[in-house]
Design a protein around this nucleic acid. Sequence first.
DNA 1: TACCAGGTAAAAA
DNA 2: TTTTTACATGGT
Length: 298
Amino acid sequence: MLRKHNKPGNKKTELNIVKPYDFALSLRAVKSFQPSTTEPNDGLQLAAVVEGIPTIIEVSQNPEINGIAVSSRPKTKSSQVSRIVEWVLFTELDLKPFYRLASSGAKLKLLTGKLHGLKPMRPVSLFEMAVIAITEQQISLAVAYRIRSRLVERFGVPIEKQWVFPEPEILASAPIEDLRSCGLSQQKEQYIHDLANKIANGTLDLDMLKTLDDDKARETIMNLRGFGRWSADYILVRGLARPDCVPVDDLGIRSVVGEYMRHGQRLSPTEVTEKLKAFRPYRGLLAFYMLANHRLNL
DNA sequence: TACCAGGTAAAAA
DNA sequence: TTTTTACATGGT
């Protein structure tokens, strides 16, 4: 007989995920990129609106079955929950071909060995991701983070000790001064209003980016007001976790690729492209592994 | 105090 | 077509 580990009021379901996968490692990796290192617990909590109801989705390791368990508060039967978690954890990504490709050199073999099972995590919503990109243009990450906190706490939906990121409709109808008073510049306030309006009135569906190839997705993003090359790449890499996509302009990437592929010397954007050429279609994953290893300081 | 931080659009040259 | 410029906040 199958043992049920369900408790009343907290329905748990298991998640199918393409292996190898190391949830704890992947979680540590995302957190190492986040400005705030609070959140002491070792599980993942996502705040999202499910069937119109603000919900906390909890993702944790289930040692009994060596898998991933998902629960939600309030509990819901909606299949939206697993779809969200599948998206965030990138369950469908198969790391095996990437490992085969990166096993050529001793250094890279060591890297993928240390980080075995690491997958990038993606934010719940691409709208939030797009707003992150706008706020982080030019100013420091810490400042951008403060501005976003004010935005979320003001317009988002509170649940437990978190907030669900505001829906486009909410920001679209927010008065200009209200957005400005969160610390956004006049330009950035316009970009966000413009984006939110397009989504709210149905002219734009960011989720369809998921169906486009890298170049087409980049082009689509760059046609939006306020999104240049940097922001488009940022969304492709962080928001969609495209396995072959590398933000070659990024200083961190240039240093860390140089660390592995030249003697710790920073590379130029074209040199990064050159050095990673052989690792298509997993150039982005490789860069992610290098960066994660650097951040985690293993 | 002044300068800079994972840019961008619009104006100017 | 390429080069400047304004922009908001907070850390140094």
